[in-house]
């Protein structure tokens, strides 16, 4: 097969299209990363050149190829207990605040998006079991979502490398995982504890039913969005939260830079964002 070329014009065309579909903006500095993956998919689909492939992407009714491409364009590397101080904040400050205002016996609802391959939602579940006495009094519902269907399948399978679990205390590794020879599988109980779903934060249709969460973890995702998409994502999360619900972002992200919807809450462990109480 002749070498497949992605021209600057192709890159620009693709960049604009992918942004509209996913809210993810690739800067020109990501050109190598993007080109490499486009060529990979052109070869896999045997569409021979960018033009044919792009036509498939745009007009394929099932959207299957767009999903395949999205899967390889999104970066999914993470590990258990990443930015652990936020989990400490969850159990020591956020959940006590949530519980103190709770007017019913329904479950406390937590949404972790993006799920990536599951390390974050499972870390939350483990943290609650290990470090939050309230787990004995309250039901908790953890939903975790991602745009990438392949990582969702990985998350559901719960299989991890040594690298993923390297920051876990040995005691927790032994308690919640079993060795599989070349890795570690998280226990069935924890796999059953998290509901993994596919969501595109840039698409209102997929987020419409996500409501009434007490806490949302949305860490290290908005850094891939441009300003206007970040505003859109902030609005989506706002509507997914109950009044006075909390959002935790990654340590380098700040909601205040692109949205004034939230107020900042400074706890001892971390700075998080809170949807204000309803003003009717």
């Amino acid at each position: 097969m002749a070498e497949i070329e992605i021209t600057s014009a192709d890159f620009e065309k693709f960049r604009e299209f992918f942004y509209r579909k996913t809210g993810i903006q690739f800067e020109p500095s990501k050109r190598y990363f993007v080109d490499k993956r486009l060529v990979e998919r052109i070869e896999a689909t045997q569409t021979q050149n960018f033009r044919n492939y792009f036509t498939t992407l745009r007009f394929e009714a099932s959207g299957e190829e767009l999903q395949n491409l999205t899967n390889i364009m999104t970066v999914n590397e993470t590990y258990f207990f990443r930015e652990e101080y936020q989990f400490e904040c969850l159990v020591n400050s956020i959940l006590p605040d949530v519980v103190s205002r709770k007017g019913d016996n329904g479950p406390i609802r937590i949404w972790a998006v993006p799920s990536s391959s599951g390390e974050e939602p499972y870390s939350i579940a483990m943290y609650l079991l290990e470090f939050w006495a309230g787990i004995n009094q309250w039901d908790v519902e953890i939903i975790s979502s991602d745009i990438d269907t392949e990582v969702l399948a990985k998350a559901r399978a719960g299989l991890y490398s040594d690298r993923s679990v390297q920051h876990l205390p040995l005691r927790l590794l032994q308690k919640y995982f079993k060795s599989t020879g070349d890795g570690h599988q998280i226990s069935q109980d924890l796999r059953d504890a998290v509901d993994f779903t596919r969501v595109n934060l840039a698409d209102r249709g997929t987020t419409r039913d996500y409501r009434d969460f007490d806490v949302v973890f949305c860490r290290n995702l908005l850094i891939y969005f441009d300003d206007i998409s970040r505003r859109g994502a902030a609005e989506t999360i706002y509507d997914a939260l109950k009044p006075e619900g909390f959002v935790c972002l990654g340590h380098s992200e700040s909601m205040s830079r692109f949205s004034s919807l939230y107020k900042v809450r400074k706890f001892d462990e971390a700075r998080v964002y809170q949807r204000p109480a309803d003003s009717k």
């Binding site: 787990i135 309250w138 519902e141 998290v194 509901d195 779903t197 596919r198 997929t206 996500y210």
Partner: peptide, 18 residues
């Protein structure tokens, strides 16, 4: 008490706009 699952919607594809 425990972890619970309440039916969450899992959309495999993006949806049409209004």
């Amino acid at each position: 008490m425990a972890f619970v699952k309440v039916a969450a919607r899992d959309t495999q594809q993006d949806t049409a706009n209004p």
